[in-house]
Design a protein around this nucleic acid. Structure first.
Lengths: 200, 200
DNA sequence: TAGATATATTAACATTGTTAAAAATTTGGG
DNA sequence: CCCAAATTTTTAACAATGTTAATATATCTA
């Protein structure tokens, strides 16, 4: 019966929505079985009928937040012209999103990946997230011969590791800078990888 | 009485040693008050006479591990000639150390910094760790004019964020590569920042 | 409507960090 | 040397965690 599956799926989404709400508003530290279930309006044991365990539930939120982040970036970079400038803009907004929602960065990169999530490909989805966001924009510089395919590949990786490393320091308090100074640091690091833009 | 302080300090070190042993062998996940106290040969409540809380105890291990890491690197880069080559070697060993002891990376960069640790300057100590390890070696390239002071500063930062970002992905399973392939990736990223060495 | 099945809840267990009270030990003074 | 005082250690307890088993409550089928 498809009806059953529909209801089960609706129940799952109910718990997932509650979890997303808690992550956004109170942080990963407040995500507990009892907390989520209460917000969803069910008992904490009911949750275990729809999810293997808490890790399972929590990683189900990743895809939703990725879509939200992509939307956040899309709205803010719609007017930017193609090429390096757009890549810069996307990276900048990528950082801004996680500065605004540090708990979502925590979920993406700091939370331990359980076996179940490893099988479903979630870790790879996360690792390739920034690359995916920029994918379309890299075809322009490589197509025009501004950078070789190999160079582009390396720069993509460098951006991925550098920006997430920077966010890690910021989110976990190893780098205690006010917002403005932090974003200035991000800009200077983007300059170091992509150039100041003057050469294009 | 200095005798009292000596004994208290010896007790603290006893708990710290037990904690370090557990972090190294079993990982951060096994560090608990009862676990540490048992290994130290005391009751779990005794621990609270010498440490504010578990965070306090755990962050006391940072300095010790930093010294150990510096030693690890020193032994493996003693024969390398000065300049960019040495910086590369240091960075490579830095990564190797944390690949060997992922739990120590966890402690340094993934563990949340509590207020008490923030006051004692531990987060800054961690953020500046790689810079400190390479500090002496940067004086050569900047002194000879191979790179400007500003460029050197940017490259230092880029290395710091890029390498720790890479390690974050590796340690948390977002990047599931066997050791050899991971180190090859590290090398290619070091090339991207420092150059292949041919230009010197 | 009665029985079967699916779903939801309560109760329980082991584990966590942390604190208060009780016990043991060490210390200081006569 | 011995008793009181201070200090150090331990036991007991609390609240919160994830997770499971047993129980209750719906819902569906015949």
């Amino acid at each position: 019966m498809a009806d059953k599956e529909m209801k089960a799926s609706r129940m799952k989404e109910c718990f997932i929505d509650a979890t997303k709400q808690i992550i956004r508003a109170e942080g990963m530290v407040c995500v507990s079985a009892r907390n989520v279930a209460e917000k969803a309006g069910y008992s904490y044991a009911t949750l275990y009928h729809y999810f293997e365990d808490m890790k399972d539930l929590v990683f189900e939120c990743v895809q939703d937040f990725q879509e939200e982040c992509a939307c956040f970036i899309g709205q803010r970079t719609a007017g930017t012209s193609e090429g390096y400038a757009k890549i810069r803009a996307i990276c900048r907004c990528y950082v801004m999103y996680f500065v605004q929602y540090p708990s979502i960065f925590e979920l993406f990169f700091i939370e331990k990946a359980p076996e179940i999530a490893r099988h479903s490909g979630t870790p790879a989805l996360i690792h390739g997230f920034l690359d995916g966001l920029c994918a379309d924009e890299w075809s322009a510089p490589t197509g025009s011969g501004a950078v070789s395919v190999g160079e582009a590949k390396q720069k993509k990786r460098l951006l991925n590791y550098m920006l997430n490393g920077l966010l890690l320091m910021h989110v976990n308090g190893r780098l205690d800078l006010p917002y403005g100074e932090f974003m200035a640091l991000v800009d200077s690091q983007l300059d170091a990888v992509l150039g100041t833009g003057a050469e294009f």
